[in-house]
């Protein structure tokens, strides 16, 4: 069954739902409808998508995204890819744990790395980072210090301890300070739709 057929099948079963095909996947425009779509796909006797392989977040600058790869263990078919998009200000997505237990750790990971709040998740805590860690490290606007560029404070420390600091490094640090910037690693890449 191709994506278009699946789309029309979901639209027939759940009237009023808005789906949009994006790169061989279905974008559910209203994130709140996600559990209904997942439950339908899981319980449909033809599709029988009983296995949620992967849940992952992604950051596209304008919005955050959660991507779901569904397979069928029974029919050996798949994947059917679902995605929902939420704004950076209120990244709230209904959790799929009541339908697929396998989402539990993966949603925790997406929460930890991207700050996606999965509503109704039984135990939404950070999974890799420690409690009290601030920020979400996989977001593209997360500031990560560049370990190869020194700041003036670093150079002062080195001077105090009698280490030789090359003039170039000194100048770079002074320039950064004059601009009021910190030594933050530059992120590469350009966002896609």
């Amino acid at each position: 069954m191709n994506l278009q057929e699946i789309q029309s099948k979901i639209e027939a079963a759940l009237p009023g739902i808005r789906l949009k095909p994006v790169r061989e996947s279905l974008l559910i425009e209203d994130a709140a409808m996600l559990p209904k779509v997942a439950a339908f796909l899981k319980n449909d006797p033809v599709l029988a998508l009983d296995y949620l392989s992967s849940v992952t977040g992604a950051d596209y600058l304008k919005y955050l995204e959660s991507v779901y790869h569904l397979y069928s263990v029974e029919k050996k078919t798949g994947p059917v890819v679902l995605r929902v998009r939420v704004t950076r200000d209120s990244p709230r997505i209904p959790s799929l744990v009541p339908i697929y237990r396998g989402a539990e750790f993966q949603e925790r990971e997406a929460f930890d790395m991207y700050g996606l709040y999965f509503e109704n998740h039984p135990d939404l805590r950070r999974i890799f980072m420690w409690e009290g860690f601030e920020g979400f490290p996989m977001r593209k606007d997360y500031e990560q210090e560049d370990s190869e560029i020194l700041e003036t404070a670093d150079i002062e420390w080195l001077d105090r301890h009698g280490a030789k600091v090359p003039e170039g490094m000194r100048k770079k640090a002074a320039d950064l300070k004059a601009q009021g910037k910190r030594a933050v690693a530059e992120k590469t890449g350009k966002s896609i739709e």
């Binding site: 392989s53 992967s54 992952t56 992604a58 950051d59 590469t188 350009k190 896609i192």
Partner: peptide, 15 residues
């Protein structure tokens, strides 16, 4: 993996 056409992947995830 999501590619944005640059030499680095835009998104890389391990299941």
């Amino acid at each position: 993996v999501v590619s944005d056409g640059t030499p680095q992947p835009w998104r890389y995830h391990v299941r």
